[in-house]
Design a binder for these strands. Structure first.
Length: 949
RNA sequence: GGGCGAAUAGCUCAGCGGAAGAGCGUCGCCUUUACACGGCGGUGGUCGCAGGUUCGAACCCUGCUUCGCCUACCA
């Protein structure tokens, strides 16, 4: 016997959630044992940035990962989900440097490297774990005991080892190449960290006089200031206009230099460069500050003159007048001076693509600098082959194209950064002979070649270098511990499609190179979360929905105040206006489960347009489940799970015979739901799985089963006199309790908290484990499919719905148990209807009797045609509005006739009869007969009404 | 410029070759002993446009239009 505990009328997540996270964690349910003999299933969480807090993208990705890992854990896999955080070097720099500037008006260079690192670590210790705490609040079942950081000791070792090995293999090299320079952060940034936007600029025509005085040549530029660093003018070799000028020189205006006119031919994006069709066909060449120009200089051997320095200011050999000017100032001055000298041609407005640093926002300067690079092509080759061979699959598959496109056009990866927060490059330079030593440990003595002093490279590695190692560095690589063997490769990686290049591609390359195996078998790419208008969420727009605000709720005032406290860039008034528009009534507390379920069910297609209202729908759903459970718990007094188990659940066909039709029906539907959820999850169709559960709970369990169970449960003292009824009650209790228990298991990966809370209170057989999260995930069992029960239930539902429709149409109050006649066309149907008459009466809140379809018309009655064999007649006396009733029936007739016409047309077509697939023709014939009967019934009803008038 | 995707009910989206669906909204009715974060019922669609393939097209193909998102070193 179990005592039931009353639940509150409304589910209160704030009371429930904290208890269960602690419980799961303290019992070690999150931890996977690498020595376990069970089949492993592993996922590595893309480590969030330590500077960040949990945003909707994280909430979505982590929710989906948690669904997978909880599902697999319940299926008996040795499920391991690896947590950790990423050091995010440049993001941390920006943050700390900003703070330094504000508080002490200092730069990192004023502070010095050691002191800066001390502060960075202190900051990381203070706020770096915020996101971890937030992940815990969402109930994510990460293996917290394994938590890692990309700059912890083990990761440092992995990074060093990887660097040294790649260097030994010739896959890391140092070279002078064109890179992207962010002068505000004083570092190289990767191509991927540069946002190219079209800005309004100008196209200036410059006239360069020929040195022999025989005329001039016109070039065009969007950056006139760079002309100070020109070392040639390039023309296409086949351009007839310039053939006579090849090898001649021009006098470079504003300087005292003479530069040659050279014939060059490069191919850029399949087009010739210089392109004779563009402008004058002649191009000024500034090798130090333009990638095309640099390539041209290499092709024909031109000198390279750097005229812009690391601070974005002009430098010698630019004429002294311009030295020290910013690029923008220099541009103005140069244009002015060119005009004064008569060197300026036509100037027209022009859209200029401009690269800006994602981090600092400043214009990126292409610069020629000595840097460390990873030779990417050979690594990419392996990654491409692995994907082609199906060793790693992309879901949805269309993302393969993005991946392949990038991989096949891959550039060498510049990995050195002129920052401090990160992994210092393990390379030492000899001050004497310039020899470079790359080593796992700092060299102890002087240079082995010349005895000179060795000094370590000042630079650090790109953050993504350590991220690329993450799937195996977290498992102990370069050592070969047990966990590496158990959990590598991961089964799946879940991330946003925006991270394919940054992370997925690089993990694939390093995973294959160092481990010889792909890092994960499947890459699942999530939707992108936007606001309800489809716009990217951003603090500067004020349309951000913070996951924790959704979970715990936030008043409008809190949201507005936060703008002042956090000071996002931009116009605060318009940010606040946007917040008022989206969150006018604040955000009510929804709980983690509601948010998680919403994200899972909305994760179809490429975007999730999220709004408070949409999460509210699923909060209501969670509350619905809560109340269904509340109902069950209130009616399970005297229920003995073990007795039910032995009588029904485990006694096979015999036990099932003791079940009523609704019991067999709900168990049949439940098994269908289990099959659908399982199949959907196997295919990463989270939305489909969530939908199946949602509809099972609402449309089947709550709307029908619970309603039909009520009369059997609501029995009082008379049970003692009637053992049959008592037994029946017990069976219904058992089906309700066990169906609910199975439903909770199905839903648990999506909504862990509410399901655990209910499950703990539900009476259940004692052999079950102590937590829902370690029970067995429901497996579809086809033996519970009961087509007969489903068909009978369908009949009951159809009749009840027709009765409700008539009742609603005529506003018959529910308190009025109106008499309805159910007219049937055959004895077989009559028997079924009679058998389930009480159910129909209860579901439709009517009194019913069964009549003959051929019965005499009832005056003043409304009629609904349920099917070809059943119709319901509701006598309404004076209540009936004959006109409205006629209109309603006429509409139905029109519908039926339209159907009939469509089907007849099909059947009259000889080609259809001859060529249609097997069964289709018969199907259409049956449909036609049904529709024709239906129409006839409706026409009869219409005539009856006419007669009654 | 190159690539990818999307257009289905007022809104957000499923469906992807043989009967137009869901959620939300909207409109009625209902404090019915699980739930008003609720129940019951209704309304609502030439499936972007134009061709083609097919016995049959929302679904496959072609073109167009309109929106998204990546990506890019045309001076």
């Amino acid at each position: 016997m179990t005592t039931t505990t009353a639940l509150s009328k409304q589910y209160d997540p704030s009371e429930v959630e904290p208890r269960w996270f602690r419980f799961w964690n303290e019992n070690g349910f999150f931890h996977a044992d690498e020595t376990s003999p069970t089949v492993p299933y592993s996922i590595t969480l893309p480590p969030p940035n330590v500077t960040g807090s949990l945003h909707m993208g994280h909430a979505l990705g982590s929710t989906l990962q948690d669904i997978l890992i909880r599902w697999k854990r319940m299926q008996g896999f040795n499920a391991m989900w690896m947590p950790g955080t990423d050091h995010a070097s440049i993001a941390v720099h920006v943050l700390i440097e900003k703070d330094l500037k504000r508080r002490e008006n200092k730069t990192r260079f004023d502070l010095g490297r050691d002191e800066f690192m001390k502060r960075a670590w202190a900051w990381k210790e203070r706020s770096g774990n915020r996101i971890i705490e937030q992940e815990k609040l969402m109930g994510f079942s990460l293996d917290w005991a394994r938590e890692r950081f990309t700059m912890d000791e083990k990761s440092n070792r992995a990074v060093q080892e990887a660097f040294v090995r790649l260097h030994e293999e010739g896959l890391i090299f140092r070279a002078k190449r064109m890179i992207n320079w962010d002068y505000a952060s004083q570092t190289v940034v990767s191509d991927l960290e540069v946002d190219t936007v079209e800005e309004n600029g100008s196209l200036w025509e410059l006239k360069y006089p020929l040195a022999d005085g025989s005329g001039e040549i016109i070039v065009a530029t969007t950056r006139p200031e760079t002309m100070l660093g020109d070392t040639a003018v390039a023309v296409h070799p086949s351009d007839e206009r310039y053939k006579h000028l090849h090898g001649k020189e021009v006098l470079l205006p504003l300087t005292d230099r003479r530069i040659p006119i050279v014939a060059v031919e490069l191919i850029r994006d399949g087009k010739p460069w210089p392109d004779p069709a563009f402008g004058s066909g002649a191009v000024k060449v500034t090798p130090a500050h333009d990638p095309n120009d640099y390539d041209a200089s290499q092709a024909v051997g031109l000198p390279i003159l750097q005229v812009i320095d690391k601070d974005g200011k002009l430098m010698a050999p630019a004429p002294a007048k311009y030295v020290g000017m910013s690029v923008d100032d220099a541009r103005k001055a140069v244009v002015e001076d060119l005009e004064a000298g008569g060197f300026l041609g036509v100037v027209k407005p022009y859209k200029v693509p401009r690269g800006r640093s994602q981090r600092s926002g400043v214009v990126i300067e292409p610069m020629l600098m000595e840097q460390w690079f990873v030779k990417a092509a050979p690594l990419a080759e392996k990654a491409i082959a692995a994907v082609e061979a199906g060793k790693t699959k992309f879901v949805p598959e269309l993302h393969v194209k993005t991946f392949m496109h990038w991989m096949t056009n891959i550039q060498d990866w510049c990995i050195s950064r002129q920052l401090w927060w990160g992994h210092r490059i393990p390379a030492w330079y000899c001050q004497g002979c310039q020899d470079i030593v790359v080593a796992r440990a700092a060299p102890t003595g002087p240079c082995g070649k010349c005895g000179g002093a060795l000094v370590q490279d000042e630079d650090i590695l790109d953050t993504w270098f350590s991220s690329a190692l993450w799937p195996f560095s977290t498992l102990g690589w370069p050592d070969k511990p047990r966990e590496l063997n158990t959990f590598y490769p991961n089964n799946v990686l879940v991330t946003g499609p925006d991270i394919i290049f940054f992370w997925v591609a690089r993990m694939m390359m390093f995973g294959l190179h160092f481990m010889g195996k792909v890092p994960f078998r499947t890459v699942y790419l999530t939707a992108i979360v936007t606001d309800e208008d489809g716009k990217k969420m951003s603090k500067t727009k004020g349309n951000v929905i913070d996951p924790l605000d959704v979970v715990y709720g936030a008043t409008l005032e809190t949201l507005l105040q936060r703008v002042d406290v956090e000071k996002p860039p931009g116009d605060h008034d318009s940010i606040k206006k946007a917040i008022r528009k989206s969150f006018g009534k604040g955000i009510p507390p929804m709980g983690s489960d509601a948010l998680r379920f919403a994200l899972a069910i909305l994760n179809n297609g490429s975007h999730i347009r999220l709004s408070v209202e949409r999460v509210e729908t699923y909060r209501n759903f969670i509350n619905k489940l809560w109340n269904a459970s509340r109902f069950a718990l209130m009616n399970l007094d005297g229920y003995d799970p073990e007795r039910f188990e032995s009588q029904v659940a485990s006694s096979g066909v015999a036990g099932r015979a003791s079940l009523g039709m609704p019991e067999r029906w709900i168990l049949s539907r439940l098994q269908a739901a289990c099959a659908e959820v399982d199949a959907a999850l196997e295919a990463f169709q989270f939305s489909k799985a969530a939908n199946a559960i949602y509809h099972f709970i609402y449309d089947e369990l709550c709307d029908w089963y619970i309603e039909l169970a009520k009369p059997h449960l609501y029995q009082g003292p008379e049970l003692e006199q009637d053992p049959a009824k008592a037994n029946r009650r017990h069976v219904v209790q058992g089906v309700l309790a066990s169906a609910l228990e199975t439903t909770l298991r199905l839903l648990h990966p999506f909504a862990p908290y509410v399901t655990e809370e209910i499950w703990q209170k539900l009476p259940k057989p004692p052999q079950l484990p102590g937590s829902l999260m370690i029970t067995v995930f429901p497996r579809a069992d086809a033996s519970w499919v009961d087509a007969g029960a489903e068909a009978e239930m369908q009949l009951v539902q159809n009749i009840a719905v027709s009765c409700r429709m008539l009742r609603a149409t005529y506003n018959v109050p529910p308190t009025q148990r109106i008499e309805v006649e159910i007219r049937v066309a055959s004895d077989a149907v009559r028997a079924q209807v009679e058998k389930y008459l009480e159910m129909i009466e209860r579901a439709a809140k009517i009194h019913a009797k069964v009549g003959d379809r051929g019965g005499a018309p009832l005056p003043g009655a409304a009629k609904a045609v349920v099917s070809a064999e059943v119709e319901v007649v509701m006598p309404l006396g004076g209540l009936i509005d004959v006109g409205a009733e006629k209109a309603r029936i006429k509409k139905d007739i029109a519908k039926a006739e339209k159907e009939i016409a469509t089907i007849e047309k099909k059947l009259e077509n000889p080609d259809f009869i001859a060529k249609a697939k097997e069964g289709v023709v018969d199907e259409q014939r049956t449909r036609l007969t049904d529709e024709q009967t239906r129409r006839q019934r409706l026409v009869d009803a219409l005539e009856t009404l006419g007669a009654a008038q």
